[in-house]
Amino acid sequence: MTKDELRAELERQAERFTGVYGGEVTTYAAQPDPERKPWRKRATIHDQAFAEELDKMEKELRTDSGSTGL
């Protein structure tokens, strides 16, 4: 189905709706769905705090293992 055929079909349906049912038709361009990219999600405060705690723990492990070298 081409764009012109689709437009014609929609026009026929709109005319039928207004003629038969007496309704009002408002035409507008559909908005695209928002693009969801979970890998680009911003980190929440909880995620940031968790990452900071992990960094602290890793630093502590490095300093502990480095100082006890026998």
Rank of each mutant, 00 (worst) to 15 (best):
K37P: 01
Q13W: 07
P34M: 12
T18A: 13
R16W: 04
K37N: 13
D47F: 06
P32E: 09
T63C: 14
A51Y: 02
S65E: 11
Y28A: 10
V20R: 12
H46N: 05
E58P: 01
L10T: 11
G69F: 05
R42M: 13
E24S: 12
H46K: 10
I45C: 04
T27E: 14
D47T: 08
L61V: 11
R7V: 06
L70D: 11
Q48I: 09
E60T: 11
D64E: 15
G23H: 00
T27N: 09
M57E: 11
L6M: 04
A29P: 00
R7A: 07
L61H: 05
R40N: 09
L10E: 05
L54F: 12
T27Q: 15
W39R: 01
Y21T: 00
S67C: 05
F17G: 00
A51G: 00
R36E: 15
T44G: 04
E9N: 01
E52N: 07
R62G: 01
V20E: 13
R7L: 15
E5K: 10
D47C: 04
T2I: 14
R7K: 14
E35G: 00
V25P: 05
E15N: 05
E35M: 08
A51F: 01
T26R: 02
E60P: 12
L70P: 15
I45L: 11
G69H: 05
L54T: 12
E58F: 01
R16C: 02
W39L: 00
A8N: 14
W39C: 00
G19T: 09
T68Y: 02
P38M: 02
Q31G: 08
P32G: 02
T27R: 14
Y21K: 04
R42A: 14
T27L: 13
A43Q: 12
R42P: 10
D55V: 08
M57K: 09
A30S: 07
K56S: 03
P32F: 05
F17P: 05
A49Y: 13
M57T: 04
E11M: 09
L6S: 02
A43H: 12
E53W: 12
P32T: 04
